[in-house]
């Protein structure tokens, strides 16, 4: 146990087993980005996967919407210590998007409109763990929260769920993305408190 602050009692939210260590629950949906939100019209939107061999798979908005859509109910955890429990999303599973992709890579870099990047091991994107989501709480995803579509990798800290997602590049090595180059952890598992590098 650390230093005791006498007279400090707190609000006792962290007894909830759904909360990872050091997290507290919030009902709001805070916006945290490094700069202004880019504007991307669905008519101009595209999602790509590029392999280490240079093979490129790409979906227009219409082609993406024609893929099987799934509903996702999940908790999300921000590295700044808030968690939001039981959020509802709709989108396309990365398993669907990776169906015809052949790769020997173990790592990926997610690229966003506006230039943001984040690295995620491929095994964290597969087997029902990650989606490209375009709906939140039954409404189209707001631009401030990453609309038209964002990556959703809820078992990692939420900076990995790249807003304004544009595509995923497969890489042989684990290459630090934007926050990972600015003091944050290379992997970001909230249950292990992988916050900072």
């Amino acid at each position: 146990m650390g230093i005791i602050s006498s007279g400090f009692h707190g609000k006792r939210q962290t007894g909830n087993p759904a909360l990872p260590p050091g997290q507290y629950e919030t009902a709001s949906f805070p916006v945290l980005t490094a700069g202004p939100a880019p504007y991307v019209a669905t008519a101009d939107w595209e999602f790509f996967i590029r392999t280490e061999a240079g093979e490129r798979h790409a979906w227009s908005w219409d082609a993406f919407m024609a893929l099987p859509q799934v509903d996702i109910r999940t908790d999300i955890h921000c590295v700044t210590s808030w968690s939001k429990l039981g959020t509802s999303w709709r989108g396309v599973s990365l398993d669907t998007l990776f169906e015809d992709v052949e790769t020997t890579s173990d790592y990926t870099t997610a690229h966003s409109y506006g230039g943001y990047t984040t690295n995620v091991p491929l095994q964290d994107l597969r087997d029902g763990q990650a989606w490209v989501a375009w709906e939140f709480d039954g409404e189209p995803l707001e631009r401030a929260h990453g609309g038209p579509a964002r990556l959703l990798v809820p078992h990692l800290y939420f900076w990995k769920s790249a807003k304004w997602i544009n595509g995923i590049e497969l890489t042989q090595d684990d290459l630090p993305g934007f926050w990972e180059s600015n003091g944050y952890h290379i992997h970001g598992d909230p249950w292990r408190e992988e916050r900072y590098s």
Binding site: S28, P30, V31, A34, P36, A37, G114, A144
Partner: peptide, 28 residues
Amino acid sequence: ETVAEWLVESGYPAASIKTERFGGTGGT
């Protein structure tokens, strides 16, 4: 959010603008 939008609309490159939110988790 508001100030950043105004700056981008007024010709400041988005890449030159760094933002940080403050005062709890805010928003509501």
